[in-house]
Simulated assay, not measured.
Amino acid sequence: MLFAAESGRTVIDENLANAAMMMQEFSHIYEGTVFGGKTGAGIAEFDCAGYDHAVRFKADTAAAIARVTFEIIRHGQGADLLVELRDGFNPDGSTAGSLLRFMVLPKEFIPTSKGYFSIPIDISDLVSGAYYWLIIKKAGDADNHFHLHGETIQDSLYPTYRRAGNSGAWTAENAIHFEVYNGETGNLLHGIYGYNAVTWLIWDGDLISKAYRYLPPASGFIGGVRQIKTYQWSGEILKRGVV
């Protein structure tokens, strides 16, 4: 069987296809241990179609992040969530700081029931005790979007800001629910392969119930290959699946 790929004509361009056929680096992300973030019983919804949001946290002694979680829900067809990890960001609008990492959570993967959903980050060269920012970029419209959830009050330990435009100062807002993890303990949750191909594994007890895979296009964040696989187990034997 012969396969072909070409930029502008196929979902995967020739560079990505060539990379996929070569040996590539990979990393595995496990459940790990939470070291920062804001959680609580608050039920406030945050508009993510009209505003970017920024939340601050402090790196722990490991100076590494394996993954982050947000309490999130999809409405309508949803919208892709783009999260950035930045150093040196200032909410007064004077500087966006340095972009250290970004990751896309495809809209198809965002849950339709409110809950915490994991996003791999995989960075290990942070500065212990330094402050960093997670920027959640606005996306979607009035009918198709996602909401972050959080508290009805602010939290000085995890200051949160929003901004509608692309310039100017950010406005302080109430605390968004999120968690930051590091370490290699617990179940395997994510794999990052080669050119930012990412997998998500959803566990039901000791068994995997769903696997999500995202292969982004080389030219940006829109499109790419997005797959959800569901598994049906008979005891500990994999019986059926949908690919």
Rank of each mutant, 00 (worst) to 15 (best):
E179A: 13
L99C: 09
R101I: 08
K114V: 14
A139K: 06
G183P: 05
S156K: 05
I123Y: 00
T152Q: 09
F146L: 06
G241L: 13
P106C: 07
L188G: 08
I135T: 13
W133Q: 09
S7R: 15
A54Y: 01
G37I: 08
A62D: 12
N15R: 11
V198F: 00
F26Y: 15
R74S: 12
R74A: 13
R240K: 14
E173W: 11
D52T: 05
A172Y: 04
Y131L: 08
S124R: 11
S94T: 15
T39C: 02
Y231E: 01
Q77W: 03
A164R: 13
N15E: 13
R226K: 15
K38H: 11
A62V: 07
E108S: 15
E31F: 08
A175V: 07
V34K: 13
A211E: 14
A130K: 12
N144L: 06
V55P: 01
S156C: 04
G93A: 06
F146C: 06
V242M: 14
D206V: 13
Y161K: 10
I202W: 03
H75N: 11
L99G: 10
N187P: 02
G241T: 03
T152V: 06
D52S: 10
N90D: 15
Y132P: 09
K210D: 13
E45I: 02
A211I: 07
W133G: 08
L134H: 08
Y212I: 02
T185D: 09
G140M: 06
D60G: 05
L134Y: 11
F26A: 10
I12E: 11
T152W: 02
I123K: 01
R213G: 14
F3T: 07
A59F: 08
A19C: 07
Y181K: 03
V225M: 01
L126T: 00
Y231P: 03
E173D: 14
G129S: 08
L81G: 08
K239P: 02
Y158C: 05
S118F: 03
I119M: 10
G140P: 05
L16V: 01
S98D: 14
V11T: 12
C48H: 04
Y132T: 10
K239H: 15
S27A: 01
G220N: 00
P106L: 13
H145S: 06
H177N: 10
L157C: 02
T39I: 13
M103H: 08
E25L: 04
G40A: 12
L99Q: 12
L238T: 04
R9Y: 14
G194R: 05
L148A: 09
I202H: 09
E108M: 15
G223H: 11
I73R: 13
I136H: 07
R213Q: 10
F3P: 00
K137C: 12
Y51D: 07
P120V: 00
N144Q: 05
